Amino acid sequence: MIRFRFSALFAALALLLLPSPAFAWWEYGHETTAEVAMKLVKPRTKQSILVLLKQQKVLETPKCPARTIEQASVWPDCIKTLGDRFSYAFSWHFQDVEICKQFDLKEPCANGNCVSSQIARAQRMVADRELPTRDRLMALAFLVHFVGDLHQPLHGAEHDGDQGGNKVKASYGVIPRTNLHSIWDGLLAERAISSPPPGADGILSEVLPEQRAELAKGTIQDWGRESWEIAKTQVYGSVIADPCAKPAPEKVAMDEATIERLIPVVRLQVAKGGIRLARLLDEALDGNHPEVAHPPRPPKKS
């Protein structure tokens, strides 16, 4: 038993020292966002989701199951391991908007290849009951996952070509070698979500119903702009005195005091992601929205 614990600890530390994570927002962030949403959606929406998930075999991805909303939330990362079959979706997980310029999605979202555009596309597809089940189920998984990605600030921002902090060397507490993206994707996220009160219930308990209604407002672009601003002020701003000063530091450090200060920021991002995902799912599936809101369907060609 002792040997197992030391082996597990060694493996965990080895994983933490990798230069970048295998999964975006890692599993815990996505699964918790999805769980929050499922606690908030309307009954008809939940039933529609469960019906789709029961047909997950049509995805033909046995190594990447989607039997539950939590599995579906990480399915778009899991399929990255399947090679060329889904390689077209790589750029859909992020939008690198420079923090030291004005917020503008025109270039990062060229041809719809960014997370904001793909959230809108996925929502339209989930809502379209004329589509094959396979297409709608894939769209559901993408929608759940991409809303999570949008609320991880470093999936919506970068500085000086650093690929959302992936190129920024960093230390995190006692972990000497990682990068800024990995910290926010997993290390800080897992610490924040597991902090008391932990998990989806704990995170929701910190947001009053009237606050949830307010957080659900806005457009996908509004939410992307918000994450971008948080990236500048809280992500880069927490470890760099002036994020836009030149030259950028070769390495940054996140100490325990900074980690403690950022835990509420991360928890609120997860809450926002779940609350807003619930709204998008209700718009698509509760039967009262013939047209989803983000954006309206493109006009049919005559």
Rank of each mutant, 00 (worst) to 15 (best):
S7V: 14
A8M: 09
A11F: 02
L16I: 02
L17S: 12
A22K: 11
F23K: 01
E27T: 07
G29Y: 01
G29M: 03
E31M: 14
V36Q: 10
P43Y: 01
R44C: 07
R44V: 14
Q47V: 05
S48Y: 06
L50R: 15
V58D: 06
C64Q: 04
A66C: 09
R67K: 15
I69L: 08
I69T: 14
E70C: 07
P76V: 07
D84Q: 08
Y88W: 15
A89C: 08
H93L: 13
V97I: 15
D104K: 03
L105H: 03
P108H: 07
C109S: 06
C109G: 03
I119S: 03
I119W: 05
Q123W: 08
R124W: 00
D128T: 05
D135M: 06
V144I: 15
H145N: 13
F146K: 04
Q152D: 14
Q163C: 03
G165R: 01
P176K: 13
N179W: 01
A189M: 13
G202P: 01
G202V: 00
V207D: 12
L208E: 13
P209Y: 03
Q211V: 12
Q211M: 09
A213V: 14
E214L: 14
W223F: 10
W228R: 01
S238L: 02
I240C: 14
P243R: 05
K246W: 03
K246A: 10
K246Q: 12
D255L: 12
E260Y: 03
R261L: 04
R261N: 05
P264N: 10
G274Q: 09
A278T: 02
D282F: 11
D282C: 08
N288W: 00
N288M: 02
P290H: 07
E291F: 01
P295I: 13
P296I: 07
K300I: 11
K301G: 07
